[in-house]
């Protein structure tokens, strides 16, 4: 196709578009859609009996706050990256809350290791974590992908990794409200590990989920 013909066709397809709101606002919209879904799953599964007591524990509160902040930061960064001309360094934004989360879990592991006897470091399979995080984070993840697909897929792997990190961190936040597993090593491996695995898988499939889709989205033949 001649380029001038393409311009003619693009011009003919120039319907009015809704401008994307700023990334911070979009992260807010995502949270508004994701949080009720997480709350619904937690209510359906029924929250843990000792939740009120756990919320008073500083370690539990720090880890939950870190997971929640990681979700917010990752969502903001993902929405930021799909706007052309913005800095890619914003992708580092979830690192501080993620580091805080990891540090709290690491500290818990160290204390358990130093503790003698049966209360020390224990490890056993807890296969429920991965599907449970995926279940709690399912609606946030779907909403995230749909929202990301409205942007420009400039860095699809990184964007999807951040989007999945946001959904999985929120999923883990919800999981800990009903799943009675507080041993730091178990949380680190089975829950944090599941979040990392989900993010890695999403990143791997980034280009499949986010791509220019030139012909499909423009309703035009591929140049």
């Amino acid at each position: 196709m001649e380029t001038n013909d393409l311009i003619r066709r693009l011009t003919a397809a120039a319907t009015p578009v809704d401008r994307l709101p700023p990334p911070s606002k979009r992260a807010g919209y995502w949270m508004a859609a994701a949080l009720p879904a997480v709350a619904l799953v937690v209510m359906l599964v029924s929250p843990r009996d000792d939740l009120a007591m756990k919320l008073m524990e500083s370690r539990f509160a720090i880890e939950q706050a870190a997971a929640f902040l990681t979700a917010i930061a990752a969502a903001f960064a993902a929405f930021y990256l799909i706007v052309p001309g913005r800095s890619v360094w914003v992708a580092a934004l979830p690192i501080p809350p993620l580091a805080l989360w990891l540090a709290s879990l690491g500290d818990g592991c160290l204390r358990a290791w130093l503790q003698p006897g049966a209360d020390g470091l224990r490890f056993y399979p807890d296969w429920i974590c991965l599907p449970a995080i995926a279940l709690v984070g399912f609606v946030p993840a779907v909403v995230m992908v749909l929202m990301l697909r409205r942007g420009a897929p400039l860095a699809p792997h990184l964007t999807m990794a951040l989007g999945a990190l946001a959904a999985a961190a929120l999923g883990n936040f919800g999981l800990r409200l009903f799943h009675q597993q507080d041993a730091s090593l178990m949380v680190l491996i089975w829950q944090f590990g599941s979040v990392a695995l989900i993010s890695a898988l999403a990143s791997w499939n980034g280009a499949r989920l986010l791509n220019w889709g030139l012909a499909r989205r423009a309703g035009l033949p591929r140049p």
Binding site: L6, G151, R222, P223
Partner: peptide
């Protein structure tokens, strides 16, 4: 040009 067209909502 087509990418600009597809991403014009992001401007």
């Amino acid at each position: 040009l087509v990418s600009l067209h597809n991403a014009r909502a992001t401007y």
